[in-house]
Nucleic acid binder design. Structure first.
Lengths: 99, 99
DNA sequence: TAAACATATGAACATATTTTCATATATAAT
DNA sequence: ATTATATATGAAAATATGTTCATATGTTTA
């Protein structure tokens, strides 16, 4: 009934996932990807009116958390949401935060 | 199809909610409250082997995010999870992060 | 009323995160 | 080959977050 080492680790992993989501710019990125499908880095940067570099740094965080995956086409790199589960968590958070 | 001001605000609110959750100690607090029901501050501090002050600061963040509510009984203050929706979001995050 | 207990809070410090700037890497076009 | 385009990355600067320490506030007990 206490926090076992296993629970501890699972919660730590969950905290890491949540931390990757817990930033407006990153939520917006995932939102755009969920709504519009895959997007190039520049396209995201334009839509969010941010520096290419800043976006790239944020995309790295999403990548490392496996929230997005990429593929290259020519010199562009396209990002897409890894799976719908992520979108589901965000939708829940949006609903709860705005109820 | 872009991010409207309304969407912008909703995502900002969601990011704030997620940020309140995105820290191991805070997840553990909510976990304990969800499993064991309401707990006093000292009891939480003991179980998590943390300073009373540090826990209080973290509890304030959870309170401000309306993730927990309190009531006083004598000189103790008992915390409990605001609603099951929160627990649901965390459970989802735990599952996704550990799959 | 004074002492003890439970919790909260402000300020200083330590640590982590985000942005910016310069530059590196990879691909395509000339 | 050289130049242009798209993206990534390291380091410094700017900002935010968490912890600690001292102390304040509210409540009970002696």
């Amino acid at each position: 009934m206490n926090i076992t080492p296993t629970t501890h680790e699972k919660l730590a992993a969950a905290a890491e996932l949540l931390a990757a989501l817990a930033y407006p710019v990153r939520l917006k990125i995932i939102w755009l990807l969920a709504e519009q499908g895959q997007q190039s880095v520049n396209h995201l940067a334009e839509q969010l009116a941010m520096d290419q570099s800043a976006i790239s740094h944020q995309l790295r965080i999403l990548r490392q958390a496996k929230l997005v995956i990429t593929h290259r086409d020519g010199r562009q790199i396209f990002y897409q949401v890894t799976d719908q589960h992520v979108v589901h968590i965000i939708r829940d958070a949006v609903l709860h935060a705005n109820e």
